[in-house]
Design a protein around this nucleic acid. Structure first.
Length: 157
DNA sequence: GCCAACGTTGGC
DNA sequence: GCCAACGTTGGC
């Protein structure tokens, strides 16, 4: 089993939106970066665990745990001219972009801010805290996953 | 195939 | 809202 961190802008789709979704499950649309796509398409498997992260907000923070419930399939928003994720180069017979489905496992008792993540020496190797990294889907280690989950517990510190 | 120009991400 | 960092595009 692998562990991941996935970023979403809460103004677009927050963990509370996920909590309100049918079966607390959503399709992860709009990934338009090849490296992130490759992770989703080639490596994400059912049962993989995901840290849900709020980006481009104040404060940026890890906010909960999700689980992959459907492996990669074509991102249909790329075929829809009305979608902001429309990409005319992606053809139905040979799709460029893929999505997975994720289900909410648990919203953290407390958000784990980027600042806290940066302060924690156990998390210093995460791509998230390395300068200039803009990946929206990234692999993390089991240890990093467990540490962030611990920090999200109301009894932490 | 190089690389300048451009667009996007996302912390601040 | 700014802008550094990065990815992509397209002229050559």
């Amino acid at each position: 089993m692998k562990y991941w961190l996935m970023k979403s802008e809460p103004e677009v789709f927050s963990i509370d939106d996920l909590a309100k979704s049918k079966n607390q499950t959503t399709f992860w649309d709009g990934v338009r970066n090849y490296q992130a796509r490759n992770f989703m398409r080639d490596e994400m498997k059912i049962g993989d665990k995901v840290i849900f992260y709020h980006s481009n907000t104040e404060p940026p923070a890890a906010v909960g745990i999700c689980e992959v419930v459907k492996e990669a399939y074509p991102d249909f928003t790329a075929f829809d001219p009305k979608s902001k994720y429309y990409d005319p180069k992606s053809k139905k017979e040979n799709p460029t972009w893929f999505m997975v489905d994720i289900k909410l496992v648990k919203k953290f008792d407390r958000p784990v801010s980027l600042e806290e993540i940066k302060r924690n020496p156990k998390l210093k190797n995460m791509k998230l805290v390395q300068k200039g990294n803009r990946l929206s889907v990234m692999p993390i280690t089991k240890e990093e996953f467990n540490e962030i989950v611990l920090m999200g517990n109301k009894n932490y510190k």
